[in-house]
Design a protein around this nucleic acid. Structure first.
Lengths: 167, 167
DNA sequence: ATAAACTTTCAAAATTTATTGAAAGTTTTA
DNA sequence: TAAAACTTTCAATAAATTTTGAAAGTTTAT
């Protein structure tokens, strides 16, 4: 496999994987491109490489910046903005985990918590609703805490966690 | 909040959360409905409750069965099929984790592995591609192993894992 | 102050994904 | 074997999401 083919394959796979970490295709592709780039890229270069429009590029770069994954780089003497992504995979995972927790998981926990604390009117169906949403609330809560704990360990968190669990 | 409101809220929240665990809205809603139901439901009842078509119901039930989350229940004397979902949240989480690993994560690891093992032609860009995809491959691999390990511990896996990590 | 270089916004268009419903298929009963 | 009860399939349609591109907005240089 040649460089160009490998590069395209990587960008596409990462792009279609977007859903798995909760972002859209163009956004994931831009991140992927920056991730393997040896230097900061301008909007022009990103548009050219990925064959996407200016508007699309602008909007998705903004979102990536909102997520804290991509940052603007100011290059002296250059008028254009240049962009880079976090290059450390563990730091990247940390950011993604924190953001998804905040944006998606926490709000769901809130709903589950509300639903599971409705008044028990004694009927079987109400009891079941309370019981099941409570169980789900606890599971989600625990997973969220677990994920954040994992990710908070600053160095080699995955390796360390694995060791503990294997024991 | 009344039973009906709480129920609708739960089904909708769980439905829109579908993306987070990688399934579509109707599929998640059907699962949610079965999850809080006190008895197996027929296709008719599901259609009625969720206001969705017969075809849609049929297709999504099939998918849920493919995932191993929903099972057909044969009720003596009844001609219709009835459906139930796994009621234990930890078992549910286990199934979802395993399926996502198999369907989504494993294939990505394969691509990352292929891309990261292209021939190093000595150029800076090739070196960067190899380095970064290798790092990503290792991270993904480790997370996958970690997730499967977590989920394999049969009882109270979350609690146990938390304890180990907090220590 | 103004023009050039560049970025953002957003309504319209394109694409993708989900849903419908009726016809075809299957199973059960009689 | 035939008809009734039920389920599946799939082409057409609808809905949701993504993308475009040109106009409006900003910043920088002169």
């Amino acid at each position: 496999m040649e460089y160009q083919e490998a590069k395209d394959k990587f960008i596409n796979t990462w792009g279609s994987l977007g859903t798995l970490w909760g972002i859209n295709k163009a956004m994931a592709q831009i991140q992927a491109l920056l991730f393997i780039s040896t230097k900061p890229l301008s909007m022009e270069e990103i548009m050219e490489e990925l064959q996407i429009s200016r508007g699309n590029t602008s909007m998705n770069l903004r979102q990536l910046m909102d997520w804290g994954i991509v940052t603007k780089e100011l290059i002296p003497g250059e008028r254009k903005d240049f962009f880079t992504t976090e290059k450390d995979v563990e730091e990247l995972a940390r950011i993604v985990a924190k953001e998804r927790s905040r944006r998606e998981i926490k709000p769901v926990i809130k709903v589950l918590s509300d639903v599971s604390s409705i008044k028990d009117d004694g009927t079987e169906k109400t009891k079941e609703l309370i019981k099941q949403t409570k169980a789900l609330k606890e599971l989600t809560d625990n997973l969220d805490v677990l994920m954040n704990k994992l990710v908070d360990q600053k160095q080699n968190w995955i390796t360390k966690s694995l060791l503990k669990l294997i024991k």
